[in-house]
Design a protein around this nucleic acid. Sequence first.
DNA 1: CTTTATTTGCATATGGGTTGCATTTAGAGT
DNA 2: ACTCTAAATGCAACCCATATGCAAATAAAG
Lengths: 143, 143
Amino acid sequence: MPMHKHTHNEIETLRGAGLKVTDARVAVLSQFIKKPIPLSALEIQQALAPSGSDVVTVYRTLSSFEEAGILRKVDLRREAVYYELASHHHHHIVCTDCGLVEDIEDCDVEILSKKVVSGSKKFSAIKDHALEFFGLCRSCVKR
Amino acid sequence: MPMHKHTHNEIETLRGAGLKVTDARVAVLSQFIKKPIPLSALEIQQALAPSGSDVVTVYRTLSSFEEAGILRKVDLRREAVYYELASHHHHHIVCTDCGLVEDIEDCDVEILSKKVVSGSKKFSAIKDHALEFFGLCRSCVKR
DNA sequence: CTTTATTTGCATATGGGTTGCATTTAGAGT
DNA sequence: ACTCTAAATGCAACCCATATGCAAATAAAG
């Protein structure tokens, strides 16, 4: 018995990526659209619980989304792996103490990326890059 | 019965960081000095086996080294956490297929780093940053 | 409506990393 | 050198994120 709350936005994205449109996938994708912040598999599963799908399904969904180019990994130096919408490409400052994440909007590493490829012997193309800054946020600095 | 192969280089580094000079620490540190590439806890332990110390000790050593500023984390998008000598600061291109790592020598993110801080509301200082590029190496592209 | 390849769920396994506690040891003081 | 104590180590057991095998469910094509 499928639910039918599929929005056009999500269905189109999935179809465009050549992925079957399933409730689980739509649900996971909506989480990222609703909250444009880095999310982990566990966080997504908890947000969708108790009606949501199994954790394993969430993991598999995230993998297929990454492979399809819908999501990209973000290294927040936490225990788990975080993902973010690939369309919403930007970088972060992360507090190594409390985990606070702040976005950095303008940051053209693209230019750098090209320079890097032309200077490389072993690589001919870059698919993705990660640029994150780490420090203590103002609250944590006080302590 | 301690061994006495401690080199000056390693002892000085440990003393300078305010850490006790132990066989385990010297052994771990030498691995990084010998091989200036990113290393994981397991890799280090295997390289030192069977005479080396327990894996737990390696984990604790790596943590204390990072806190002391001797090592820095590197995100290679593998299962395990990798470390590298903080003094040997540079970035990488990583093959997402076979794991090949190539160094990028010149890459001044320092300037960028300052710009980022001055533009931030929640952070007043950056301690570290990570910039890594991901793609397929020439060998993996062929397949 | 049927068919089939894909996806999902459940149980179970894996593997990196951590923790508690007893034992050892580096390094400071004598 | 000898003693002392806080810090470091080893071992065993544990935790948690993530993966896998397989049978049941289901999306999408015919």
